[in-house]
Design a protein around this nucleic acid. Structure first.
Lengths: 118, 118
DNA sequence: TGCAATGCCTCGAACCCCGAGGTACGGTAG
DNA sequence: CTACCGTACCTCGGGGTTCGAGGCATTGCA
């Protein structure tokens, strides 16, 4: 309960969300994703390879991603892209995130009871 | 990786954040907090007692909360309020959350970077 | 030759959340 | 008076995620 040395664990499912989002924009491989997330969030979110690869495998096993092997400069890379199912999943997660963020934001900003804001 | 029956686990540390925020506005007891969170987020966030009580105990043990027993209608309640340390903790977590939410929002909305794969 | 970067991967520990279950009491319906 | 529900506290075990460390292989550069 004490000692919070690592990233404030404020995220859960966030890696999956970000990975799906990245891959929807552009075909990418694992190692690239790790650096892309760190770069595009300006290190606010920093996931390691130990997070990315398992998520990638899980999503592919669920049919949300498809992969193809490609050789570049004598190096073997595995590129991933989203399937139709993955796109749907991204939409769902994305909406869930928006709802959550909005609800929390409202609690942090606004005071006093729920005055029905609609 | 399968079976996502419960709340999409999109939060981590969120309960702690919301509890601190509620208690900063108003002295409250555990059972009340459970219902307050559910009510004020319109059920978007729904944490159970099994989440709230342990967090409460942990925060008190860390010196972020102080408690006092109070009898109301012959019922014994334990009211919690934030200490100076708790207030600081809330400020930190709150800022961390804002940064995270902003970073993710940016990735979800804007594409930027190497876009256009055709 | 040596070392860094690229690129893939897995394992065990740590962490957090969840639901189920337990205790106790007051009020109310039957 | 007995059930039962709501209030109010609590803990435990299980499951899901993330993390860091580490392993393996190749290319490029000094």
């Amino acid at each position: 309960m004490a000692a919070r040395e690592t990233n404030p664990n404020f995220m859960n499912g966030v890696p999956e969300l970000l990975i799906l989002r990245l891959l929807q924009q552009e075909e990418m491989y694992g190692y690239e994703i790790v650096h892309a997330i760190r770069s595009r969030t300006e290190a606010v979110v920093a996931v390691g390879e130990g997070v990315v690869y398992p998520v990638l495998h899980g999503l592919e096993r669920d049919g949300a991603l498809r992969s193809r092997r490609k050789n570049v400069n004598g190096r073997s890379r595995i590129y991933y892209s989203v399937t139709a199912a993955g796109s749907r999943r991204l939409a769902d997660l994305s909406e869930a995130w928006s709802n959550l963020a909005a609800a929390i934001q409202k609690m942090l900003k606004g005071g006093r009871h729920g005055e029905a804001i609609q």
